[in-house]
Computed example of a mutant assay.
Amino acid sequence: MSDTKNVHLPATEQIPVISAELKHAAETLQEVGFGISVFGSARIPSDNKYYEMACELGKRLAEAGLMLIAGGGPGIMEAANKGAYEAGGRSVGLNIRLPRETSNNPYQTHSLQFEYFVSRKATFFMHSSAYIALPGGFGTMDEVFEVITLVQTRKLPAAPIVLVGSAFWGGLIDWVREQLLGNKLISPGDLDLITVTDDLDEVMQVVNACCSQFALEPTCEPTLPH
């Protein structure tokens, strides 16, 4: 388990570890190519419909020849990794030890271990051509809003951002429309960055529409938001 004392280390000691984590992640992603990042809660049990959807999503991505990148923990992360792994696909886990997540899920063809959230989260954005989020808590919200911000500000290349589960995400999107757009805190076109759906066929259509260009660039090196 990660040593909580690390948060009290001076930045001069933390930075070399973060740099090493990023370098190792970049080297690994360079070997396996572009992927699709999947976000979601560690707390969703295996009998939940969203677990089943995440598993099916992982399977479909693998069958389409696309690498899946998930958080490596239980819940939605496990389901997505499992679907890809059992379908014979490339299944990357970005693992970080937390009090609620004391072990990595076993459905990973490529396993990366992180001490710091900053390097782990940056790795999601290094070599992904699309981002898919299923229901989740604060961590999932953090990942979703960061990728929206990075695409909105063009710090990342344009990429699909798909939220799976209209009942879960609908209230948040209504709030964004009423409060952020209504108060002119975002532009009208910013909402077009996001697709909300319950249909995995639609998810795959959105993903496949953007991925042909990356199939032509298999040697493109991972890059951080700039």
Rank of each mutant, 00 (worst) to 15 (best):
E86Q: 14
E86F: 03
E86Y: 05
E86T: 11
E86H: 04
E86S: 03
E86M: 10
A87Q: 09
G88L: 05
R90Y: 08
R90Q: 14
R90P: 00
R90F: 06
S91G: 07
S91A: 15
S91H: 08
V92N: 00
V92I: 14
V92Q: 02
V92R: 01
G93Y: 01
G93V: 02
G93F: 02
G93M: 04
G93I: 00
L94W: 08
L94V: 10
N95L: 03
N95T: 10
N95A: 02
I96S: 09
I96V: 15
I96F: 09
I96M: 13
R97Q: 11
R97M: 14
R97I: 05
L98P: 10
L98W: 05
P99E: 11
P99H: 11
P99S: 14
R100N: 14
R100Q: 15
R100M: 14
R100F: 11
E101L: 02
E101P: 07
E101M: 08
E101H: 07
E101T: 13
T102P: 09
T102S: 15
S103T: 14
S103G: 10
N104A: 15
N104R: 11
N104L: 04
N105F: 06
N105E: 04
P106L: 07
P106M: 04
P106D: 08
P106F: 07
P106E: 06
P106N: 09
Y107P: 01
Y107N: 03
Y107M: 06
Q108P: 00
Q108L: 15
Q108F: 01
Q108I: 13
T109L: 11
T109C: 12
H110D: 14
H110Y: 11
S111I: 03
S111Y: 05
S111Q: 13
S111D: 04
S111W: 02
S111C: 03
L112S: 07
L112G: 02
L112K: 01
Q113E: 13
Q113D: 15
F114G: 00
F114C: 02
F114V: 11
F114M: 04
F114I: 08
F114W: 05
F114D: 00
F114A: 01
E115H: 08
E115W: 01
E115N: 07
E115Q: 10
E115G: 01
E115D: 09
E115V: 12
Y116G: 06
Y116L: 09
Y116A: 09
Y116H: 11
F117G: 07
F117I: 11
F117Q: 12
F117E: 12
F117D: 10
F117H: 10
F117P: 05
V118G: 01
S119L: 06
S119Y: 02
S119F: 03
S119W: 00
R120E: 08
R120Y: 09
R120H: 10
R120P: 07
R120D: 07
K121A: 04
K121V: 06
K121W: 03
A122L: 15
A122P: 00
A122C: 12
A122I: 12
A122D: 01
T123H: 00
F124P: 00
F124W: 10
F124D: 01
F124V: 08
F124Q: 03
